[in-house]
Design a protein around this nucleic acid. Sequence first.
DNA 1: TGTGTTATTGCATATTTGTGCAATAAAGTT
DNA 2: AACTTTATTGCACAAATATGCAATAACACA
Lengths: 113, 113
Amino acid sequence: MRRGRRMGGRMMGPMMDPRSKFFMALASDQRIKILESLKKGEKSSAELIKVLELDPSVVSRHLMMLRNIGLVSARKEGVFLYFELADDRVLKVIDLATEITKDWFNRFQQFFR
Amino acid sequence: MRRGRRMGGRMMGPMMDPRSKFFMALASDQRIKILESLKKGEKSSAELIKVLELDPSVVSRHLMMLRNIGLVSARKEGVFLYFELADDRVLKVIDLATEITKDWFNRFQQFFR
DNA sequence: TGTGTTATTGCATATTTGTGCAATAAAGTT
DNA sequence: AACTTTATTGCACAAATATGCAATAACACA
């Protein structure tokens, strides 16, 4: 069954393959930076804001997204929040992506078009 | 250095972490369907159009994207094109994502908000 | 209570993506 | 040449994402 006449954009919602959503969470320079920062251990919001150089509200939203899908967990201490990786398997995924994309530099003229 | 006042949207371009782009390619139900179809072997455009139930032009674009980043290769035979996986390592990435997201079903009320 | 700090949410906006239709290109067939 | 079939590209538009600012909530402390 084809879609309607004008059904632009991504079709989000409960029927989406959860793996698409998982990869969507990783499809962002900022969120990859967050995950790689947390690889070395727990970090505060302030530290992550410093790393990303973005508005605190934006960093908060990236972190909320990673928390919602269970890749990052948060610990509250007074007004402060401290974040850490909640699922180390994501590091393996990122490592594989690093390996695969290393090959792209060899033929990057067709990729960076 | 902060960004300008209104810099919405994703910042694409050559400076992007290539891994973000790699994950972006996987952040789509349709492209995951394509890759999983090709897991079983070479497929024609017609077969993939049948699987995705989308306009041929749309399927062509998804395939072009996967070809551009080197995950899929194409073989021309007359007017027809046949596609196959060009890098089996992506299957390992998808398998890991399948494992990780299996846990989501246990607590999916907070995920599917 | 008032003040200050941190985190989140509401809103507006720029950018990107996904889609379908139409037109075109490429290749084969009659 | 004319016609058919397959694949790609041009275009418009809907939907989603990323961002910053402003307002608010949550919390500590004087």
